[in-house]
Every structure is written in C-alpha cells, then in structure tokens.
C-alpha cells in the first residue's frame, strides 16, 4: 500500500485545515475582537490621558495579544479530537512532528496573523509613540509564532480533557513569561531611544529553537495523552 510522500501529506493537511477554517471564517475574527475589547478597557480603568496611556501602550498590546492567543489555543486540536482525525494523524506513517508543525503553522496564520494586523490599530487606540510601532511589530512577529509553538505543546498535554481552560492557562503562562519579558524589553528600549537589536535577536534565537524542538515535544506530548 502506498502512503504518498510526507510532503503530500503536509499539503493535504494544510489544505484541509484551511478549508475547514474557511467554512467558519467568522470565527477567525474572534481573537482580534477580544483583543480590541481588552484594549478598550484600559482607558476606562486608567483614565484617557494620552501621556499615561502612551507609556503603557506597548506592554498592554503585548498582553492583550497574548491573552487572545491563549483563548484561541484551545481550538488547536479540539475539533480534530472530536471527529477522530487526530488519532488518524498520530497513526499515520508520516512523521508526526512534521504534520503537527503544519497544523501549528495554519493555526498561527489564522489566529495570530489577524491579531498582528490589528496591532497598529490597537496601538493607535492607546496613543502608542510612533517610534515604538516598528519595534512592537517586529517583536510581535517574532513572539506570536513562539507563543503558538509553546502553547501547542501544552495543548497537546491537555487534549483529552473536557474542561481544560483554566488548567491550560496555568500550564502555559509560566512558559510565556520569558517571551513576554523580551518582547516588552524591546519595546521599552525603543521608547527610551536605546538600541533594540539584543532582545529581538534573543526572540529570534528562541523562535528558531522552538521551531525545531516544539513540534517534537508536541508529538511526544500528544502520544502520551492519546495513549
């Protein structure tokens, strides 16, 4: 029996996931909507002074996007588990880490990318200083895939549970702390007019590391929780 190539399997998986998401394209905007609502709460809580909001804008946008990403993480394997295709994925003759990497990539494209595009708008709502915007976007572009990759490992561990929301947050947030620190560090440096290369390079290094290791860890975790 022929199984086709691993590349073909990846392409089929990506096309299938994109098709599934396209059928329910309204949901794709939910994380971005959530982020806008979180951002909207800050001026109400802290007062509308542009100076005060501008000082905390970058960090607030980062946290809002992190939380929005956390909310959408749960959906990564949920529907696949329910219709049984996740087990087929684990049983398939193709390397599981590669297939999971494709799934994570699609998930990032459909949940994090809209957030990334919304980020300048969110920054504008909070009077983000213009010189920080470039750094913020660079930090977000590097850190959102990192968050998706780290999060995927934790989702794989909780995949069999019915109500995993709070537990997932507990597992994921300690792992998110370093990413948030470096992303916020870059924005802070930009705000003070300091060089921003170092924290961004650290984020890039972490992203490269996670790109290789996280799919492997995700596969191992998935095998544990489906065994």
């Amino acid at each position: 029996m022929s199984h086709g190539t691993a590349l073909g399997a990846c392409r089929a998986l990506i096309v299938r996931d994109l098709a599934l998401l396209w059928r329910r394209r309204g949901d794709a905007l939910n994380p971005a909507l959530f982020a806008v609502m979180v951002i909207m709460l800050f001026p109400f809580a802290l007062g509308p002074e542009p100076q005060m909001l501008g000082r905390i804008a970058a960090g607030t946008v980062l946290v809002a996007l992190l939380l929005a990403g956390l909310l959408s993480l749960d959906a990564l394997f949920r529907s696949d588990l329910e219709d049984g295709s996740l087990e087929q994925l684990v049983l398939s003759p193709h390397p599981l880490p590669l297939l999971l990497a494709c799934k994570i990539a699609v998930h990032w494209l459909t949940t994090a990318l809209p957030l990334l595009l919304a980020a300048p708008l969110l920054g504008e709502l909070l009077f983000l200083p213009p010189q920080v915007l470039g750094t913020l976007m660079a930090a977000l572009a590097l850190s959102t895939p990192l968050l998706s990759l780290i999060g995927a490992v934790c989702v794989a561990l909780t995949v069999g549970m019915r109500r995993s929301g709070m537990l997932l947050a507990l597992l994921v947030l300690p792992l998110y702390v370093p990413v948030l620190i470096f992303a916020a560090g870059a924005c802070d440096a930009a705000q003070q007019g300091l060089p921003v290369a170092a924290p961004l390079l650290w984020l890039g290094a972490a992203l490269v590391l996670a790109l290789v290791l996280a799919p492997l860890a995700c596969a191992a975790a998935l095998r544990i929780s489906l065994s």
Binding site: T158, G160, M161, L167, L170, L171, P174
Partner: peptide, 14 residues
Amino acid sequence: LFLYLGVIGLYHAI
C-alpha cells in the same frame, strides 16, 4: 510555584 501547581493540576485532571 506556578510550575509546581501546573504539574499537580495536570496530574489530577487526567
């Protein structure tokens, strides 16, 4: 502490 709580929470949730 959060890592410990995560381990304990995951252990009891399965």
